[in-house]
């Protein structure tokens, strides 16, 4: 780990565990992590890479941080990449549909994380054309509150002839998939830690649960799923830092979704009823994980990745996977 990454990660670990409000997160510069140092307003961005973002967002996931940090980080990065000055306040990402004519947008953006609090949303809008158009939109005409399974805001934003800024044609939902992969990796690791502590402390049949072979084998499987998620996400970050990453982000999110499927069930199983209360912290992780599993492309990436694989011969699958790692 680079020295800078270690410092940023340690700063995140200290701050995110301290139930910070949004102002403290913004003040510490985390939303501008993926913005170059010479852009991004006062003081500039942090100039971190995707590996740094992965490390910080893992910490956010492990702490069930109830803020749209990753969404803001991605919006700031995409704006910087498009040479747009960072607008003041909170900008998040989202996707929706509608009409974009004469610099006016009429339509909706669905399930926007903290949409009610956002000053801007950077949204991939399906206008019926082949590629979505990416629009920077101000506050909407109406906000319809919604929420994720974990109770986080997921709001519908409706716009009527709202003026916006078009940034070209792109779909950023893959970056969102990377964000959820990173958070899930942290949350799964934190769930494993809770589970280990629990089975070491909880006495049944006259001994700690951890001494039961069936419990050991369950936690070994949970640890495997944590490991697979962590390496998939880190490898996707590495590919992004090399200027690739589309296939890797898809694959990492798919693998993460499999890990959530198995991992959440196992973390709860070894906790018994104790893990099922409002007081015990496990649900803060597992309810988020279940929601993240469907956000930014659930298993639809599987069909896309499969269709892309089927464009070439069976042998090409291997040559393509290896080409991506040989630099």
């Amino acid at each position: 780990m680079s020295q800078m990454r270690q410092q940023i990660t340690e700063a995140a670990e200290a701050l995110f565990a301290d139930t910070p409000d949004w102002a403290r997160l913004a003040e510490a510069g985390f939303p501008l992590l993926l913005v170059p140092e010479d852009v991004g307003g006062t003081g500039g961005g942090i100039g971190g890479d995707w590996g740094d973002a992965f490390a910080v967002l893992r910490v956010a996931g492990a702490n069930a941080l109830p803020h749209p940090l990753g969404e803001a980080m991605l919006a700031a990065h995409l704006l910087a990449r498009a040479d747009i000055t960072q607008p003041p306040g909170l900008t998040v990402i989202g996707s929706g549909g509608g009409q974009w004519q004469g610099d006016r947008f009429t339509g909706w953006v669905a399930a926007v994380p903290w949409g009610r609090d956002a000053d801007h949303v950077l949204a991939a809008i399906d206008t019926g054309a082949d590629d979505p158009v990416m629009l920077l939109l101000p506050r909407p005409t109406t906000v319809t509150p919604g929420q994720s399974p974990a109770g986080e805001p997921r709001d519908r934003l409706d716009y009527v002839a709202t003026s916006g800024l078009a940034l070209g044609n792109a779909d950023h939902s893959l970056y969102g998939a990377f964000l959820r992969t990173a958070q899930s990796s942290g949350a799964l690791d934190a769930a494993l830690t809770l589970a280990i502590d629990h089975v070491n402390a909880r006495i049944q049949f006259g001994k700690p649960l951890s001494k039961l072979q069936a419990v050991q084998q369950s936690l070994a499987v949970l640890a495997q799923e944590c490991a697979a998620t962590a390496i998939a996400g880190a490898a996707a970050a590495q590919a992004l830092d090399r200027g690739q990453g589309a296939m890797e982000m898809m694959a990492a999110k798919l693998r993460t979704n499999m890990a959530i499927h198995k991992g959440v069930a196992l973390a709860h199983q070894v906790h018994g009823a104790i893990g099922f209360t409002q007081d015990y912290p496990l649900h803060r992780l597992t309810r988020r994980l279940m929601g993240w599993r469907s956000e930014f492309g659930g298993d639809r990436w599987a069909e896309l990745l499969g269709a892309a694989t089927m464009l070439e011969t069976g042998q090409t699958l291997w040559t393509d996977i290896t080409r991506r790692s040989d630099q």
Partner: peptide, 11 residues
Amino acid sequence: VIGRLVAELWT
């Protein structure tokens, strides 16, 4: 099915 298998293979 192939997409999921490719994701696992890559990981």
